[in-house]
Amino acid sequence: MQHTYLGKSGLKISRIIYGNWITHGSTVENEMAQRCVNAALDAGITTFDTADTYANTKAEVVLGEALKGQRRESLEILTKVYWPTGPMGPNDSGLSRKHIMESINGSLSRLGTDYVDLYQAHRYDVSTPLEETMLAFADIVRQGKALYIGVSEWTADQIRAAHAYSKELGFQLISSQPQYNMLWRVIEDEVVPTSAELGLSQIVWSPLAQGILTGKYLPGQEYPAGSRATLDSASRFIRAAMNDDVLTRVQNLRPIADELDVSLAQLGVAWVLQNDNVAAAIIGASRPEQVEENVKASEVVIPADAMARIDEILGDTVERNPAKTLEDQPGER
């Protein structure tokens, strides 16, 4: 497993991160979750990503239990704050000082640790002054409850404003966690160059476009039973992308994967890691075998001609509009 520095910091993370969105505490039984975490550790993954909102706090509990007994100093544990938790009361979401302070304490308790390595704003909060949010993060860092701060799905302008506050307040804003994959490239024109300028790295989620880039969905055929596309909770992204044109183009990527002697899933994860500003890709798993397969992608180098062929095959199915990040952000709370 390769490790790399996160942003302009001294913190190293594994290039493949194990994440537990929509798995732990939800679609994956706890015993299988433990096996998947063990597989990640055995493969050299040291970085684990979660959020308080996943399974309404249960995912943090499961991850904390799965990591119990591991040497804490050898792990990097990442979590997030913004979305509702608990009974969904008026202050149970957002980035107000109240919600942030209560959320970090809850996350630490559930994860069974005294601190998290990276605490991330899960979305931008238009209802709370940015200064209030950043002051709360600064205090959390000074209290030793988080070592570094990151954001998730923020625009370039929002990142720039937050970075200015972090410099003034004396803590390090080192990462952005956006959706990024062959089909969804909205960060490339603005977020990536801004982050590179300011010293942030990308930790990307959904490198496989929520399963589409694994090739398991075939044009003109029923979706596999139990797959993400069949769930009532399937995201807007996967519903919009599940058409025969996209699925056919994904199948047309197989010859490239075959030439590189990798699976389509490995090709997808390796593709995001080709971006110099991407420090790591988050993978999820419902079986240990998926962890073992995806970890191998960190060693794959895709030649320039193959990268060009991928662009040609996917063509105009690729979403590149940076405004999509702002469009997908929550409004007033």
Rank of each mutant, 00 (worst) to 15 (best):
Y165G: 03
K167L: 14
S233R: 11
Y115M: 03
W205N: 02
R160D: 14
V186I: 12
Q251A: 11
A156W: 00
T230V: 13
Q143T: 02
R228V: 10
V126I: 13
V126C: 05
S127F: 07
D189F: 06
Q179G: 13
P129Q: 06
Q177L: 07
L183M: 10
I149V: 15
L253R: 08
R239Y: 08
P255T: 05
T155S: 15
A257K: 03
Y119Q: 07
L118P: 06
A146N: 01
Q177N: 12
A241L: 13
A241S: 12
A229H: 15
A257S: 00
E131H: 02
V151E: 12
V186H: 00
H163F: 13
L130H: 03
F171Q: 01
S201W: 03
V246Q: 07
M134E: 11
F237C: 07
Y180C: 03
V192R: 10
E259Y: 08
A257P: 00
E188R: 06
Y217C: 12
A164M: 14
D232F: 15
E153H: 05
L208N: 05
S235M: 06
A121K: 04
V204F: 03
E132C: 09
A138R: 07
Y180E: 03
A209T: 12
D244I: 08
N181Y: 04
I140V: 09
Q251G: 05
S166Q: 12
G220H: 08
L208A: 10
R236F: 10
D244R: 03
Q251L: 13
S201A: 11
V250P: 04
R123I: 07
S227Y: 11
S152H: 05
A241K: 15
M182N: 07
A146I: 04
T155N: 08
E168M: 14
A257R: 01
T230K: 14
D258N: 15
L147A: 02
A209C: 13
I174L: 09
A164R: 12
F137K: 00
L260G: 05
V186R: 01
D189A: 15
D244H: 09
S233H: 09
P219T: 10
N243K: 10
L253N: 04
R185Y: 02
G226V: 14
A257V: 00
A138Q: 09
R228E: 06
M182H: 04
D244L: 03
D245P: 03
L118R: 05
L147H: 09
K216I: 13
L253I: 02
P255S: 06
L213F: 02
E168I: 10
S176Y: 08
I159E: 08
A164P: 02
V116L: 01
G144Y: 04
Q172W: 04
W154H: 11
A257C: 07
T230A: 14
L135Y: 04
Y165I: 03
I159K: 06
A229W: 11
G150R: 10
V186T: 15
D114N: 08
E168Y: 06
L169T: 10
G170A: 07
I203T: 14
A156Q: 07
I187E: 13
T248D: 04
Q177M: 13
D117F: 06
A162H: 03
L135G: 07
